[in-house]
Each structure stands twice: as C-alpha cells, then as structure tokens.
Write a protein that binds this DNA or RNA. Structure first.
Length: 635
RNA sequence: GCGCCUGUAGCUCAGGGGAUAGAGCGUUGGGUUGCGGACCCAAAGGCCGCAGGUUCGAAUCCUGCCAGGCGUACCA
C-alpha cells in the first residue's frame, strides 16, 4: 500500500473490518502545527475560487425597531459571508434597507398626527423613538381587529367567559343598546367564531360591552378555577393575569380609538397618496426621519462588526422595478387580473398543480410592492455588480415569495436568475411565543445588549478584578456580544431559535465564553512561557513530541479538521458547523490541559506542548473570527 | 387543498449509512499544596414521532401515516 511510503504514516492494519491507519505522530504533529503557525490568521482558508458571490443580509426597515429577530439575520449573514470568503470565494456583503413602503407611511402619519415636535433631543435616541411611533401607529390602526381577535380568543378558550354571556346580555339591554348587534355578538362568542367588524351596526356596542368583559376577567382572576384539561380542547394560551392585562391595555384606548380607528385608516391612505405624488414636504420629512433610523443602524452594525460593500435601498430600486413590471405587462408575461397586475406563473409554465401560484407585481393603483423592487434588485446584482451568484439571507417564510420572483425573471428571459438563491432560516421566538409588536413583547436589540453587557461586566468584576478598567470594558463587550452571537449561530438554519434572556445571561456551558475562555487560557500558558508563534515556529523541525497522549492526539485531530469544516460549512451555508467545531475544539483543549502539564513538563515535551497550545490558540481564534466572535487574550 | 420545515434525555439542541446515539442546562454526588474553578470528574436520565421498505448495517436514505409550525394574489 502506498500509504506505507508516506512519511506521515506509521502503520496500516485491518481490525474488525476497519482499516486502522497509525500515523507517525511526530511527523504529523510538527507538520500540522507548522502549517498553523506559519499561516496564522489564514489557517483553514481554502484556495481562492474565481467566483463572485453576493450575500445580501441584515435588511432592516427604517422607522422600525431593530430586535433580536434582525440580530439573527445579521449575525447569520456575517457568518455565512465570512465562511464563504474563507472557503475561497470572492464575497460581497450587501445590505438592503427597507426605507419605503406602507410601514414608513404609517409611521409618518402617526408622527405628524400625534407626535410632531416631540422627538427626543438626543440624536442617538431618535431611531428607537421612531420605532415606537411605528408600533403605536400599528396599534391604533389595528385596534378594532385586536379587540375582536381578543374577544374571539376568550370565547375559544375560556368556558367561564362564554357562560357569563347571559349576564352581559341583560346588562347591555338595560343600557339600551342595539339588540341586533348584541344577538350577533352572542352568537359569535358562543360558537367561538370570528366577529366581523363590518357586521356591527351600532358603533358603540363594543365600547359598551367592554367594561363587562373586564368585570368578568377580574372576577376570574380573583376566584381562579383550577385548570382541568379537556380532551380535544386546546390549552389556554394566556393566564388570567395576562388576559386582564391585555384587556386593560385595550380598555385604556377604547373610548377614543374604537370610533376613530376607521377614520385613521382612511388618513393613512391619503398619506400614502402624498408619498406616491412625491409631495415635497412629505419627502423632506421622510428623508429626515430615515436618517434617524440609518444613524441607529450604522451604530448597530458597527457594534456587531457587520460591514457592507454595497448598500441597497428600496427607494432606489422602486422606479426601475415599476418599469420592469410594466415591461412584463407589455410582453404579456404579466396580466391584469381583477384589476391587479399579476404574473400567473403556473399558467405560464404549464403547471397544473399549484406550485408557484400567482404573484402580484404592482398594487392595483400602480404603486410598488416588495416584489416590484426585488425584480429590479435581482437584475442589478447580476448586471451592475457582475456577481456570479447572489444569496438572499431572509427568513424562511419568504421562500415561496423568492421562488416566484426568480421564476418571473426567468420567464422574462433573465437566465442569471437561476444563480439567485434564497437562504431561508427559521424565526427567533421567545419563551412566551412569537415576537409581535401587537403583543408588545419585542426584545429590542439595545435592551438585550445592555442586559447581556451588564451581566458580563458583573462577572468580570468577580472573576478578574485586577484587569484595568479599559480592559474590563473591552472584554465585557467581547464576551457579551460573543455570547449573543453564538446563541444565534449554534442552531441550524432551519431550526427556530428560542431566545430566552435568562439563558442568554448565563455564560456557562455550551456558549461562546467557554470557547473564549479556552482561548484565554491558552494565551496565558504561552505568556507564562514567554513564547509566541514566532519563537516556536523555528523550533518545530525535527522536534520530538515523544509519545503523544490521547488528549494530544485528539487536539491535533481537531486542529487539522478546520479546513474541511470550512469547506463543508460554505457548501451547505451552515455556520452551525463552525459553531459546533470551535466548541468541540475548546473541549479538546480543556481535556488536553487537564491531562497534560505544559509548563512543568521536561524538554522537549514542554516545547512540543507549547507549540500545540499555540496552534490551538490560533485555530480557536480563526474559528471564532468566522462567526464574528472576538477571542480575548484574557477575561 | 397544495407546498416547505420540524419531531432525538425533564428542557434547549448536536449527530456526513458504520463501533456502546452525544453535549449543555437542570437534578444528585465529588474535585484547588496544580498552567486562571467562566473549569473538570461521576451518577441518573433514550421504543431517535409511528409503520413499512432499501442495505451486511438506518436517528441518518425512500414511501406512507401521526403531531406541530410556516407559506399559499395588492404586508415586507
């Protein structure tokens, strides 16, 4: 066998159907460690590939809050782009800012109508404040739906609530309300069916009804009945306390918002028309407020270490998108169906089963949709930026959407659309459920970061009080952000990330600080020995490592596998593989330094172990760097 | 209806057809005359959703079912 002639192989034998190959460990160790120390930060990287890949990620919307959901996207996008670059590709990072659209109009409507001149004086606070204004606009505009949805939820999962309907009915009749509306309400609630706003004839029937709902919820909270699971009945999604809190938050605005809400929706339509007409005053307001959000985003991306080669803005591709949409109409690829410009994709492809379905490419009033803009954006990526492949890092709920966009471009004759790839990933959810501005449970990035940072500072104070204040601050950032990022990356793309703040605040176990700690320990050992990569490298040739311990062999294997891990992670777009890899390597290093004394060992073992420590340190740092996580030398 | 995704330890998750299915958290019990205890060691805890199939061999591949999530024409 040829293997026996290779100096790296010691012996080859077959055992139990497996071929066991024993390496000449000395030769392997010094060759591998030599490569790591020589290549330094580039160890693990593949040979350059002449393919340009654009990775679009981070797409936040201006006038909205940046929350942990966006965090997953940015962190994942950065890691994928790092991994692809390390694998050898020529990578461009692109951001795509949602600076126009209905959400912007809603926010600005709410600002002009209720908050003009109230904006915070401090520039740093404005972006976030704008997000709050947007959330308020949403609450105001959806008020009626929120109220009716809540009623339906109560009706569906609270038998007590339904049982007291009778009492409510009599109460309401005494108040001389419309009997027909009450009958309708009762019918829907008893059968737990949706209540249709448009079928309510008398505008104050819900406001009249509301206090009684509150009375009932209060009574249920004060005299709770133990929960008894019933076969076939879903478990309640809210506790009595949560129900009452929800009722109170809606009751707070009931008198004003219930009757005003429909008018507000009309106002938003008018405001949207001002945007479409590009009314100068409105455009100026848009530019000002957009800058508030952008300043916030640039700060956040700097904190996250996300850099971009290209910044796209929806506002910049809107016109081109509209032109493309009209061209699709002229060529007969798109058509007007029920007044709406659409592409009937399945029909065009001759598919009988619903597959790509039908996609609207403009609103019926001719204004642009998200799809309108992505048509233009896709073309631009290939034609203007000349990329060979374009990747969209966007949550998985949009997978049909992207298939539609790319298919429409193919129908249009844009062959490169085949090199467009939507990389879907699952959502971030909280222990209490999905992130929803309606439920008011949005974990804003700044708040989460502050909480994690405070915890990191506290732990550093405990563990390493002698560090200088500057170092402590620096390390706290690196640990806090590293921990947050790792939590986002140590889960496969198609798995939901359960974001539990308590868990994010724990730096123990399978988390970034464990890996960073191993790195810091390795640094400290080298420091004690006054050795560096430079001093160790020249002494490797012919160095006798002696009989390598199992822990040393395990560590060497770990170090050796980084290049393969990078290639696979790039091929599969899975930073998780790197996240698992660095944790495993840290564990191996832990095993090593518990089993093998370094500084107290006799020469030449001491030098061999120092070299192994140096190579591990470097490999850990390189792996963490792929994830966008810092590797502090002390912590 | 159709499509996509998920189902592995109490919880959160790894697991590239191959050896006795692994981590972390939690629980129980241990560990510092030692290079930093953000650590380590040990114990307990599993019909890998169910049923077929392919294979010498399946948590992994195929088919069917069950359960949950998401998407499915003017939000982004």
């Amino acid at each position: 066998m040829a293997a026996t002639e290779n100096p790296l192989f010691g012996s080859v034998e077959a055992v139990n159907g497996y071929v066991n190959i024993a390496f000449d460990s000395n030769a392997v160790a010094s060759a591998l460690i030599g490569e790591v120390l020589e290549r330094g930060a580039s160890y693990g990287q593949g040979t350059p590939i002449t393919e340009t890949v654009m990775v679009e990620h981070s797409q936040p919307n201006t006038h909205k809050a940046f929350h942990v959901g966006h965090l997953r996207n940015s962190v994942l996008g950065v890691a994928i782009s790092n991994v692809l670059r390390a694998a050898g590709y020529d990578v461009q990072d692109a951001n795509y800012i949602g600076d126009i659209g209905l959400h912007v109009v809603k926010c600005l409507w709410c600002y002009e109508r209720f908050h003009r001149g109230e904006e915070p004086a401090s520039p740093e606070a404005r972006g976030r404040w704008l997000g709050e204004v947007y959330a308020e606009s949403d609450a105001r505009l959806n008020f009626r739906k929120d109220v009716l949805d809540f009623l339906q939820l109560l009706a569906g999962e609270d038998p007590q609530f339904v049982a007291t309907i009778d009492r409510m009915l009599k109460y309401l009749w005494r108040k001389n309300a419309d009997g027909e509306d009450i009958a309708y309400l009762l019918g829907r609630i008893i059968h737990a069916q949706p209540i249709k706003d448009e079928l309510l004839r008398q505008d104050d029937v819900i406001p009249l009804f509301w206090p009684i709902v509150g009375d009932q919820l209060r009574a249920e909270m004060e005299a709770p009945k133990p929960y008894v699971p019933v076969e076939g009945e879903p478990e309640p999604t809210m506790t009595p306390e949560e129900r009452l809190a929800r009722w109170e938050s809606l009751a707070e605005h009931m008198d004003e918002w219930w009757t005003a809400s429909p008018g507000w929706r009309e106002e938003v339509r008018e405001t949207f028309a001002r945007w479409e007409a590009q009314e100068p005053a409105f455009v100026a307001l848009w530019e000002t407020t957009r800058d508030w959000s952008m300043a916030d985003f640039r700060r956040i991306f700097a904190e996250l270490g996300a850099t971009f080669d290209v910044w796209f803005f929806e506002s910049e591709v809107e016109d081109e998108g509209k032109r493309m949409a009209h061209d699709l109409l002229e060529r007969g690829i798109a058509e007007i169906s029920d007044g709406l410009p659409v592409v009937k994709i399945d029909e065009k492809l001759g598919l009988t089963e619903p597959t790509y379905r039908t996609m609207p490419i403009l609103r019926s009033d001719g204004s642009s949709l998200y799809s309108t803009k992505d048509l233009a954006l896709t073309r631009r990526k290939f034609e203007e930026y000349g990329v060979d492949r374009a990747i969209w890092v966007v949550d998985v709920r949009q997978s049909l959407y992207f298939q539609q966009v790319f298919k429409i471009l193919e129908l249009w004759g844009f062959e490169q659309a085949r090199q467009a790839y939507h990389l879907g990933y699952e959502m971030v959810v909280l222990p209490e459920g999905v992130i929803s501005s309606r439920k008011g449970n949005v974990p804003v990035y700044d708040d989460v970061r502050d909480a994690v940072l405070a915890r990191a500072r506290q732990i550093i104070e405990e563990k390493n009080p002698d560090l200088s204040p500057e170092r402590k601050a620096q390390v706290a950032w690196e640990v806090a952000l590293g921990s947050l990022k790792y939590a986002m990356l140590a889960r496969d793309n198609n798995k939901v990330v359960l974001f539990d703040l308590d868990e994010a605040l724990s730096f123990d176990g399978h988390a970034a600080p464990y890996i960073q700690y191993a790195h810091a320990r390795a640094c400290r050992i080298l420091e004690h020995a006054s050795e560096t990569e430079e001093t160790l490298l020249p002494r490797l040739d012919g160095l006798d490592f002696g009989t390598l311990q199992p822990e040393e062999l395990g560590l060497l294997q770990g170090i050796a596998s980084l290049p393969d891990e990078i290639q696979r992670a790039a091929a599969e777009y899975r930073p998780l593989l790197i996240a698992s890899y660095v944790y495993d390597l840290a564990k191996r290093f832990n095993d090593f330094y518990h089993a093998c004394p370094v500084l107290t060992s006799p020469e030449p073992t001491r030098t061999g172990r120092l070299a192994l420590t140096a190579a591990t340190r470097r490999t850990l740092a390189n792996g963490l760097a792929l994830l966008g996580i810092a590797a502090p030398a002390e912590m």
